[in-house]
Design a protein around this nucleic acid. Structure first.
Lengths: 349, 349
DNA sequence: TTGTAAGCGTTATCAT
DNA sequence: ATGATAACGCTTACAA
């Protein structure tokens, strides 16, 4: 059996309250006594029993992060960021792998209530009324990471997807591309879907490039779906010179399709992604993409959450994290191109 | 405040012991009464307070999985498997992201002791005496996943790395390759390093193919290190026709290097990996590799752990999980090749 | 500044 | 079959 507070008290010749105070309010106890107690604590290797403290003040020092799938490196990265701040705040983080399934979500929530987790970081699935209701019932602080809940006034940490998507598209245009196809996520996805879609449209319009349903194809945000989407897009736009995909997974699926068609990237078709997953630098050529500071998003969400836990009243503000375009090898500059591969010399406006 | 067992008892007009029994030993309570209590439990939304039960029987229903890095999809996959069994056993799993750092490990362990976690799954770092000592001190069941601790008689779940590596090498040989370079992990890594290295050597020897230090290059098991290793290997063996890397990450790093040198895979050089990470099907061409059933490893480790937790005395046996060679597009068959790319027709023995 | 004692919610032992 | 009660280890009024 582990030593209890009573063992420490006895051995140090003080009352158990004194021992407790040494932990929770050290200043309030006489230096000499404190040192004696600390000494004994050390000797006995005493540590407070978390169940007992939890029972008293109903706090677990545990937070939970809910993500659709751990195997997706986007979330793994975010989790790393959350973990870092958690560890330094002496919190433990547990993971809820929801796989975008409401039933599974409920299963977890039941568990969390039972475990009395102190806070929740919810990542990247659309916030429907269903989720919102459950958050409310949980009665613990909730931070959204890479999702948005403006409708319900939930604090969030995320990238400005519209702006980033606009810039990605503009980058392609500045490189001389006009026939640009867009592989969109599902438009019902509030962030990665809708906003990136509109960012694309916005940039095209701003550069007076016409767009129509011909330019875009909708897809789930996975590698396989990206592959299929590229097939459809290519059928619709055989003349395209560039493809912009709303996620790296899709972009890499698209590259796979192009490769299989004997189309070289970027010689024949340029490709631009979004997310900067680790894999984007592993493929050949490296994928030019929009980098989210995913780790940073996790850290910030964690920090905000702890703040909310410590100080329940204060209203939290949503935060936007910077993004950046990472230029690697999949976008060809058609403007100052000496040799387009077909031997011709061209300068576009 | 949440309803307590007392609230239920009062409302159902029974004693708290009866309510407790309804949870822990339902048969022992009269049907009629049980139903009445269940009814009230439902109405009040009562759930037992985990701190209180924990305080009683010193069990947290929490297990921990320690891995070097969550961002590595190998571990993410394994974790998914562990999670599945945990959820169905009503356990919660928390993650310790050690990043192969002893200090960090200790920080976590301290936390675990405090949290009274019920068991530990330890994945894929060499078991040194340091770890072994700490495991012992923890006094909870420990299962090794994709590592080995024969020296200390710790139960493990893993692939037969020697055998798998032997087969991977043999596959290359059967495809007509003789000048095969091997990118090895660090040989001090007990599994992925040493055994895969020896599997390579074993297969080469069995087919009477000479090997020397010329054939192998040692590397950390990462993408970047694989890239560098390929550069070194190519310098040593410019005539090689195939490269076998002890991990997919390294294999893909190697492919990147080859691509940059203008060497086509598999036309000029064949590549074989190990692990079957998700990324191995994403690259072009898809990587031929050895598949570990990583998810299965996780599930098995979890199952064994729960078994050990429930039944402390029983000795656990180590388990070997099947592996399989996944043929994709990076290995060229040099035996029945009509056109080797150089127009020549060849049949090797 | 220090100590005493009540109470957190549960389970298990013992009576009934 | 059911109920009363002690015990788990800690924190915090309150008393000294």
């Amino acid at each position: 059996m582990n030593p209890s507070i009573r063992d420490v008290a006895k051995k140090a010749n003080v009352s158990i309250s004194t021992v407790s105070r040494v932990f929770n309010n050290p200043e309030s106890v006489n230096q000499e006594m404190r040192e004696r107690v600390l000494q004994v604590i050390e000797e006995l290797g005493y540590a407070p029993n978390p169940f007992a403290s939890g029972l008293r003040d109903n706090r677990s020092k545990v937070i939970v992060t809910m993500i659709p799938d751990i195997r997706n490196s986007y979330y793994a990265e975010m989790l790393s960021g959350i973990e870092e701040v958690a560890l330094s705040n002496r919190y433990t983080v547990i993971i809820g792998n929801t796989i975008q399934n409401e039933e599974r979500f409920l299963e977890y929530v039941k568990n969390f209530v039972k475990m009395k987790v102190d806070g929740l970081i919810f990542a990247s699935t659309e916030i429907t009324e269903f989720y919102q209701k459950n958050f409310e019932a949980l009665k613990i602080p909730v931070i959204l990471a890479s999702t948005e809940g403006r409708e319900w006034n939930l604090p969030s940490v995320r990238v400005n997807d519209y702006q980033a998507s606009y810039e990605a598209t503009a980058f392609l245009i500045q490189n001389g591309h006009q026939d640009i196809g867009f592989i969109s996520g599902p438009t019902h996805a509030p962030i990665a879907g809708r906003e990136r879609y509109e960012g694309f449209l916005g940039a095209m319009a701003a550069h007076e490039l016409p767009t129509s349903e011909q330019n875009v194809v909708y897809s789930e945000m996975s590698f396989d779906a990206g592959y299929e989407a590229m097939a459809k897009l290519y059928a619709k736009m055989p003349h395209l010179t560039a493809v912009y995909a709303a996620s790296d997974s899709m972009a890499i699926g698209a590259m796979k399709f192009l490769h299989e068609q004997g189309l070289e990237v970027p010689r024949h078709v340029s490709v631009m992604g979004f997310d900067n997953l680790e894999i984007s630098r592993m493929v050949s050529p490296g994928l030019t993409t929009v980098a989210q500071q995913i780790y940073e998003i996790g850290k910030t969400a964690g920090t905000m959450l702890f703040q909310a836990i410590e100080n329940r009243e204060e209203e939290l503000q949503s935060v936007t994290i910077d993004h950046e375009i990472i230029v690697r090898g999949t976008v060809r500059n058609r403007r100052l191109m000496m040799d387009g591969g077909d031997g011709a010399f061209r300068v576009f406006v």
